[in-house]
Structure formats: structure tokens, C-alpha cells
Design a protein around this nucleic acid. Structure first.
Lengths: 183, 183
DNA sequence: GTCATAAATTAACAATTGTTAATGAGATAA
DNA sequence: TTATCTCATTAACAATTGTTAATTTATGAC
């Protein structure tokens, strides 16, 4: 996802882009998009940490964490104009640049290469999710935890354990058992 | 998915489309796309039944069944030119119309509305998968089985039970237990 | 530093599903 | 018809994870 954002800026006049962006800082545990709402913004994380999650009868299912330099939105909601299946929420105090739906529409109208980029981002998101879901189905919680340690150690450092448990699809109790199991 | 295909044909000269399509009939249990290969074709199911599946250490994970009038491909593989995470295989003897990558490229080049359609199909596929995965995570096998009976009874009629089990993410033994549980 | 709150750990127990293996039922070919 | 093969069912047992609740540890406010 990072590469795509770089691509976005590379082919693009930064000054023009900045005209379209506003900056917003929110404290921890602030919701930027509520599940069920139609996404109105795309966010570029400048500083802080967000998570994308779905409410399952009061239990969280966390799908993704977003750190500095990542692009965040419910792209499918943005694209289809349908209610989002996910909420977006800050974990730490977070500063984002905001691109509204309307301004994005303008940008896309004027720039064929951005239209392609937008499609590409959605496709990439699709592929990321497919891999996430496949991993969730194919590997057991212990394997997924160890994979997380290897591949995304920054998550372990900055994300509370109960969110990590919800990302792994298990309860905090179960995660604690895995962590303290000597193998 | 059906609606999208109708849309495809609606805005489109059927005779022109037919120039691009060839017809192919394969017996049951024939693989049209192998996991790991790069998708070269899009298939339009005329008659029969296909499934999209992923190999998990010898165990099948079935993601989707495709009946008459549905469009089948590994769109993400097609789009990204990367190896497919899924195989496509016939369950019954199946007749498909085939659109090759090259011919599709031609079509897309000449028709802006088809480019949009292609993007739309990929996005719709994305959204379908998201719902499938969410259901798989949020509901237990029994709930998913009863949902299948309600929403897609045609699957129960034409698909062997062990594929249904693999679609529900459980073993055939477990599915049999669910089926015969009096509740 | 102390207190209050939130998060993580641990233990006991329940529930669900997987595994293995034996049996039964249905389809197909000789 | 019989033999064979595949698929579905059933049972016994194992393994994993969830649930609840008590306890410990960590964090943040004052």
C-alpha cells in the first residue's frame, strides 16, 4: 500500500494535491468512519495509528492497522456509495490529511492516471484482504501470531494486546495462552 | 454478479462480442485454471457448474460456486498478472464461453465502458468476498449451513456434500452431524 | 507516590470441531 | 445380480478455543 501512495505522489504535483487536502488531528479512540455510514473521506496517515474493524455483536473483528504514510478508507464504500462494513478508529492520537469524496471526484475527473491509480488501490486492497482472509482460514492462531511477530513487529510494539487478539481472531485470554506457551 | 453480466451484454453489440468468444465443453472434475498459474481466460458459464477453490495442504477450501449465466475468472490474477490464489474446476460437465486475455485487452482498449465494467466486476467480486469472509468469521458452521439452505438452495441440490463442507469451512463429518442434529 | 482503572494472566470448566475408523447407502460397471 | 467404489453417517476420543472469574500487572490521573 505504501508503494501505491508513493506512486500517487510521484506522478503528481504535490502543490496541486495540497490544495485539496486538509489536516486533522484526533485523540486516541476516535472514530473517523462509522460502520454503516457511507465513506466520505480518504485519509492519509501523517502520524499515529488507525484500525479498520467490524462489529460482531459487540465483539471487535480488527482487519487492518494503518501506520504513518498509509492510505486509509473504506474504498468499497467510497466506490459503491454503499454503507461501509467497517469502522475506522484511532488507536493513538493521530494526524491525517483528509481528501473528501467531492474533491476526490474532481481530481479523478481531471486525471485519468488517478482514476487508474484508484482502481489499482482498490484491487490491491482486494488482494490484501484475500491474503488476510486466507491466512486466517488456513493457519491456526499460534501460527498467525508467530507470523505477525516476524512480518509486522511494529504492530506488537504499538497495538494493545486485545486488539491484536481481535486481529488474530481469538480472545485476549487465548492470545495470552499462546504467548506464554513454551514450545 | 448476474446483473453485471446482463449489464455487460446490454450495452454491447452481441454480434461483436460473439466474434471474440469461443465455446468449450469439459467433463466433470476438469480444471480450467490451476492455482499458481496466471489467469488467461474469462469464462461465461452456459451450462453446468464450476467451483473456485484453494488448496490448503491437500484440503480444499471452496470459495464460490458458479452456475449458468455467471462470469468466472481469477480477476485479480487477470488484473495484476500474478499467479492465481485459486483453481477453477468443473463439478458437472460444463459448457463455457471463453474470452482470452488478449481478446479482452482488445475489447477493453476499444471500449471505455467495458473498462469501467471490468473495474466494477472486480469491485463487486471484492465486495462479495468480503461478505463471504465476514460470514465465515462471524457465524458458526450451523448458522452458515442454514443460511445456505435459505439463500442458495440450488447449491444443495447440485453440489456434493463434501464440497459444501469445504465451502462452509468444516469437515464432511461435521457437516453430517449438523444435518442430522435435531434442534 | 498513591489511587483508580484498564489490561493481561492464569485456572477450571464447557463446548465445538477435528480425527480416525467402522458401517451403511447409493451408483456404476462387469 | 453381484462386486466395487465413492460418499455419507455414526461413534469414540482428542485437541483447541471460548467463557467466566479471580488475580496480578501496568497505566494514567491527581
Amino acid at each position: 500500500m505504501k508503494n501505491i501512495e508513493k506512486l500517487a505522489f510521484k506522478n503528481f504535483d504535490v502543490k496541486e494535491l495540497n490544495q485539496y487536502l486538509t489536516t486533522k488531528t484526533v485523540p486516541a479512540k476516535t472514530t473517523l468512519l462509522y460502520e454503516g455510514d457511507i465513506a466520505q473521506n480518504i485519509y492519509f496517515v501523517q502520524k499515529g495509528l488507525l484500525r479498520l474493524w467490524n462489529n460482531n455483536d459487540g465483539d471487535d473483528i480488527t482487519f487492518q492497522f494503518f501506520f504513518e504514510d498509509q492510505i486509509v478508507s473504506s474504498f468499497e464504500s467510497m466506490y459503491t456509495n454503499q454503507p461501509s462494513s467497517f469502522s475506522i478508529e484511532s488507536i493513538e492520537e493521530t494526524t491525517v490529511k483528509v481528501l473528501t469524496r467531492e474533491k476526490m471526484a474532481k481530481l479523478l475527473n481531471n486525471h485519468e492516471e488517478l482514476r487508474q491509480l484508484f482502481t489499482q488501490i482498490i484491487c490491491q486492497r482486494f488482494i490484501d484482504y484475500t491474503h488476510y482472509f486466507l491466512s486466517r482460514i488456513k493457519e491456526n492462531p499460534q501460527e498467525r501470531y508467530h507470523e505477525l511477530i516476524e512480518k509486522q513487529p511494529q504492530i506488537l510494539k504499538r497495538v494493545p494486546q486485545y486488539y491484536i487478539a481481535s486481529y488474530l481472531g481469538i480472545t485476549p485470554v487465548s492470545l495470552s495462552r499462546i504467548r506464554n506457551k513454551k514450545s
